[in-house]
Write a protein that binds this DNA or RNA. Structure first.
Lengths: 166, 166
DNA sequence: CATATATGTCAACATGACTGACATAAAATC
DNA sequence: GATTTTATGTCAGTCATGTTGACATATATG
């Protein structure tokens, strides 16, 4: 099943290597969230807050529904962390001008500061790993993971470079 | 931050690219757990059960403390899922021969069957991504992620099995 | 005007982490 | 042989973050 398909079965498709790939992803993800988790705890925030801060930071004036589509959680789940972040003034909501039902989300100054602090930790980790692995390896990392994520996410998050709506 | 340290600052260390690397890891991890989660739900199991099944499957006769060290959770957390898996006969515990305090863990026949089913889903995903990306990219993927995980995990999980790159 | 959409809220529940305290059997050590 | 340490388990409570379902309100759209 892992094998016979095109007749060719490259070495890196051996079960053992696939298993290694799986575990690498598991451990890397775990280690990569550890440091931000510790920072967030200082503020009484959790990983869910981080995600919101990350994507609002990267997509200023994003709508609630766009954010929900990216995070792929229910509005009730988002509501808890988002209102928490708004209450503590890390995020502000502004009424949309074209569509006044929308609450456009943006980081406040403290939101930006926290976002920087959190992402710095992760960027450092990536920068180190990238530097040690080299440019070619980075390209490989991208290729493999890009092939693993759903087309939906790929288009939504990595596809567009053009500004749209609003 | 996107630092100047060795004087050289390769293109792939630009903040934008580091951010892409971070998001790739986030989305890949999420998508990669989705299918197993659905399978597990059939059995009334969750992601925590999957981890136990995975590492017991890959390390037959593992002790509880070794498993705890790999999973990096408390014994109380492990206890809940492990006893569940034992009760439903996906895992058996055998008294250690040298050390009779130990409960060596092993998958039962149904445990193996479930492990196969879960890992098949993830192996397929990896095999596809690997095949599309090519051998060189796979090597890059490994290099980057290996550099991102803690030394502890690297040694414990990837050390003894396969001698890793230079 | 009628309906669809964007957002929010209440309430209940599940999962999987955590801490802290305590229990038992067996191994290791004095 | 007595004591201490280790491997494991258990009770009880808490927290973060996900879920479903029902309902509310303002605004946009046909």
């Amino acid at each position: 099943m892992t094998d016979i398909k095109s007749g060719i079965n490259p070495l890196f498709l051996r079960e053992e290597d696939l298993r290694q790939g799986i575990e690498l992803l598991y451990f890397a993800y775990r280690d990569f969230t550890a440091e931000p988790d510790a920072i967030l705890a200082e503020y009484g925030f959790g990983r869910a807050h981080h995600r919101v801060i990350h994507f609002v930071g990267g997509n200023p004036r994003i709508t609630v529904s766009e954010l929900l589509a990216i995070l792929n959680i229910t509005k009730q789940s988002l509501s808890r962390v988002l209102s928490h972040l708004v209450r503590e003034e890390f995020i502000i909501q502004q009424e949309g001008k074209q569509d006044r039902r929308q609450r456009l989300l943006e980081l406040t100054a403290s939101g930006v500061a926290l976002e920087r602090r959190l992402s710095e930790s992760q960027r450092r980790r990536f920068a180190d790993a990238y530097r040690n692995a080299g440019a070619e390896a980075v390209e490989g990392y991208r290729k493999v993971l890009m092939g693993m994520i759903s087309e939906e996410d790929r288009e939504r998050v990595f596809g567009p470079k053009s500004a749209e709506d609003e």
